[in-house]
Nucleic acid binder design. Structure first.
Lengths: 135, 135
DNA sequence: AGCATTTAAGACTCTTTTGTCTTAAATGTA
DNA sequence: TACATTTAAGACAAAAGAGTCTTAAATGCT
């Protein structure tokens, strides 16, 4: 699969934050209930997003997490980069260690195009795009 | 990553078989030495390919494995299907359980195209294509 | 000050993938 | 028949990913 489970959860969580929050912090508990993702596991994932500068977090009553930038300025690629890294677009499709732009494997060119498509898709889709899709 | 390690190894092994074999069976030992893949692990993977009807195997002296069909008639998709299955092309990119052709997620259309590209690439590339690439 | 709420952090478990090792079964050859 | 070669199969170990649980730290409210 393209994205790890953690990364899928991260995207679902950010989608929920963008949909549910009205400028205030949204508690992780609420996000977990909304998405069905395990509360504690989700907590870890959101910590990663906080460290990556995608979310702000605040402790205590009325605390929770919130987007740092607007939903329009946060892209799927930001989230994927933070959680899974961008290795998916660099790896040789056949896992050949010698494969590089200089010494290409037989799939290199085609695979490169596909990776570029994926990256562009992830980069061109903001969180706002995704949530407005459902309205 | 798109393909599992086992699947990458399977492709590398089949490539080696097509390159090295002259109609005879090629011992797994030779393939392991040639590719650097662990002998025992490779053995398991090749068993899978044998059960899937991609390879023939023969025990005893002068035994080993060989392609069932010609290198021109064996595609990458055959190998991927046997080792990893074809789930990669069906799963929702965001892991949403409700996502389907009827109830699409925001990436459904784009992701579908990318998956189709990948499938077509894997299906259109025969083992012969890959080995002739290097000549 | 004390309490309830909420994130942070780390230990721990479970599962899957990856990899190793040993033994069994098949087969050609002397 | 005995032996060497080679795949088949299954037990086992190691590593990574996924998920759970407990405790600590921060913060608002009374």
């Amino acid at each position: 699969m393209l994205l790890s489970k953690s990364c899928e959860y991260a995207i679902q969580a950010v989608l929920t934050i963008a949909r549910k929050s009205d400028g205030d912090y949204l508690p992780v508990r609420k996000i977990a209930d909304e998405t069905g993702i395990s509360y504690h596991f989700l907590g870890k994932i959101l910590q990663t997003l906080t460290k990556a500068g995608i979310l702000n977090s605040y402790k205590g009553p009325n605390g929770g997490v919130a987007l740092v930038r607007s939903a329009a300025e946060t892209t799927l690629l930001d989230i994927v980069a933070a959680v899974d890294g961008l290795g998916f677009a660099q790896r040789c499709a056949l896992g050949l260690p010698k494969c590089s732009d200089e010494s290409q494997c037989a799939l290199h060119e085609d695979w490169g195009k596909i990776c570029k498509n994926m990256s562009q898709m992830l980069e061109s889709r903001s969180i706002l795009d995704l949530i407005s899709f459902y309205k």
